[in-house]
């Protein structure tokens, strides 16, 4: 029995002039319908590459010789996608699984009206006439809260504001009632007040449609609002995964601590200083051997040194449905968090 979305040991490597870029290097996670998974990570951590791999968008429209090398398994509702016929995967795209992108202005075609783009998305998967499809587009625009949808359906993307464009994008992705919705930084390009509206909308729609949602973001606030489970990515791998509440209140991995400490927070008293992670993200070509976070980890010396530098830590269960990939023992993790990190946040 597999989960609704079950990703197993996913690897996505890109050959380049400088060497093989290992954007995702052994990632596994599961997601059930009605649940929201938040994938958190910084740029280059492989979170967007993962979502595109699930959608099959690395192989679709890949021209030229340098093809992405993808291995592992991606099960969606009992079908393995990586080995499936590409045309079958294409038919699933937009119908079973849909995606919302970061910048709705560049993600919508500038030369076609919003209505035409939604109608197109609907008619690929449904054998309906132009009029029925248009009615459906208006209905969806109305559902996502666009005022005067019967008029705005004929507007071009540039005539919409940023928030309205993202609403239209959401309408387009939900037009076929997909069971899996992947939102890649859906609010990063938006203002805070508009972000609040869009997050609210995504939450409502999920409740209504009962689909599985993957939300990819660098903003811990956004995942805290939406996600049931959180997966923290670093250097193409998962370093910690668990229920949202535990991730925020009992994080185990030093990188997760770093993310929490880097962030100025409105909900706390003024911190004197932020606690940044030193150094910069790892190279995806010459990955540090052993734990990828080792060069930046303030606790690299806590466990046995040679192990951290040579052996890559595997994800191990540190609590109910809570995994972390760190050489420190669960006790050490708990103690450092409680004594050294939590009081400073």
């Amino acid at each position: 029995m597999t989960a609704f979305l079950d990703v197993r040991d996913l690897k996505v490597h890109f050959p380049t002039d400088d060497g093989l870029v290992k954007s995702v290097d052994g990632l596994s996670f599961q997601l059930e319908k009605g649940q929201t998974l938040g994938i958190v990570g910084e740029s280059g951590s492989g979170k967007s590459v993962t979502s595109l791999a699930v959608m099959g968008l690395h192989t679709a429209g890949q021209y030229g010789k340098r093809k992405a090398r993808i291995s592992g398994e991606i099960w969606l509702d009992g079908t393995e996608l990586l080995a499936a016929d590409p045309d079958h995967v294409r038919r699933l795209r937009g119908r079973e699984m849909a995606m919302i992108f970061q910048d709705p202005l560049s993600a919508l075609h500038p030369y076609y009206t919003i209505g035409k783009q939604i109608v197109e998305a609907y008619r690929i998967h449904h054998d309906v006439g132009a009029k029925a499809a248009r009615r459906r587009a208006v209905e969806m625009l109305d559902r996502v809260g666009i005022p005067q949808p019967d008029k705005r359906v004929d507007s071009y993307p540039h005539e919409f504001s940023g928030g309205m464009r993202q609403r239209a994008m959401i309408a387009m992705s939900l037009v076929n009632n997909p069971e899996l919705l992947i939102a890649d930084e859906p609010t990063t390009a938006l203002d805070v007040t508009v972000q609040a509206q869009i997050l609210d909308l995504i939450r409502d729609l999920q409740r209504e449609f009962g689909s599985a949602v993957v939300i990819i973001t660098h903003d811990l606030g956004v995942v805290a609002e939406l996600a049931d489970d959180i997966l923290v990515m670093y250097g193409g791998r998962c370093v910690e995964r668990g229920p949202a509440d535990e991730l925020f209140h009992e994080p185990r991995h030093p990188y997760t601590w770093g993310l929490l400490g880097s962030m100025p927070r409105l909900d706390r008293d003024q911190q004197e200083r932020l606690i940044p992670v030193k150094g910069s993200p790892p190279s995806l070509i010459n990955r540090p051997s052993g734990c990828a976070f080792n060069p930046r980890c303030p606790y690299a010396d806590v466990p046995k040194d040679d192990v951290t530098r040579t052996v890559r830590p595997e994800l191990t269960e540190v609590g109910g449905r809570h995994w972390a990939a760190c050489h420190m023992s669960a006790e050490q993790q708990k103690r450092i968090w409680a004594e050294e990190i939590a009081p400073k946040l």
Partner: peptide, 27 residues
């Protein structure tokens, strides 16, 4: 409104979001 719109990085406050002021429309 601006301050209440900032997502709080704490899942326990998810339910406290009822106090959020959602502004209508755009600037």
């Amino acid at each position: 409104a601006l301050m209440s719109a900032v997502p709080i990085p704490d899942p326990r406050r998810k339910n406290a979001k009822s106090g959020r002021i959602l502004l209508n429309g755009d600037v």
